[in-house]
Design a protein around this nucleic acid. Structure first.
Lengths: 128, 128
DNA sequence: TTAACTGTACTATTAAGATAGAACACTAAT
DNA sequence: ATTAGTGTTCTATCTTAATAGTACAGTTAA
């Protein structure tokens, strides 16, 4: 399903981001149980060890908590999830602005850019 | 100077992008000679072998050409460089839109986003 | 020819990501 | 106690990125 999007970035990082996005979208509500290490491994098409690492890292970030023998869960702190949305948003904006700035675009091109983004964002409004 | 920005992505890819950006900005004009493998290695703080790989890959993409024993040069095809600017721009926009769409933002938040980007882009107008 | 530059090629080594497989430890329900 | 489900740990192996060092091959100018 999700598969590997960017072969040049560690899979465990990409899966971490995917899980964060799902939580932010409400696909994994606060406090909900995540698929087991083995289930998620099958869903993502990777080794269970890789998922174990993902869960461990997410727990280290306070985004996931684990009850040994029981399962791993998305944090029940809704604020934490909202904060993650902000973090991801700001990171995306920062990266984008830096990339575009590095290209030294003319003002006219910048105008077109803004329009292009506006269209794309409002267009994808009904998706996901 | 440039150093490693993202430790989770191959250095040679990051350096490839850096060189493309420099060419797009005019720092390396069309047909200009690139620093030698050994010079660039020192500038970037990496091994000469890594730069050799970078030049080889860039040549494979038609962005650089090499005269053996003489040096490596940015393509003298100005259109090719302009095209690279478009490629990098579109890639940045596409990535950004996908990332933001995945976060399922409310319309009000999207409005703020557009404003944030506009400000940042026009603000960095005098930089670089 | 010689010297000093170029890019290129090769071997060896290290480190990290990822896979494979097995085993262990905890929890809950039967 | 047993079973089946959790996460956890461990060893071994493979691959790729990157470094280190050396050597080779082509070009240019002294």
């Amino acid at each position: 399903m999700t598969l590997i999007i960017d072969p040049n970035r560690p899979i465990y990082l990409q899966i971490m981001e995917e899980i964060k996005k799902r939580a932010v979208r409400g696909h994994y509500p606060p406090g909900s149980q995540l698929p087991s290490v083995r289930e998620m491994a099958q869903e993502m098409g990777v080794n269970p060890n890789t998922i174990a690492r993902v869960y461990t890292e997410l727990e280290r970030e306070g985004f996931v908590f684990t009850r040994r023998g029981q399962g791993s869960y998305i944090t029940d702190n809704a604020r934490r999830i909202e904060r993650e949305r902000e973090i991801l948003t700001e990171a995306a904006v920062k990266r984008f602005v830096e990339e575009i700035s590095a290209l030294d675009l003319q003002n006219s091109h910048r105008q077109e850019l803004i329009e292009m983004i506006t269209k794309n964002l409002t267009h994808k409004e009904n998706k996901s």
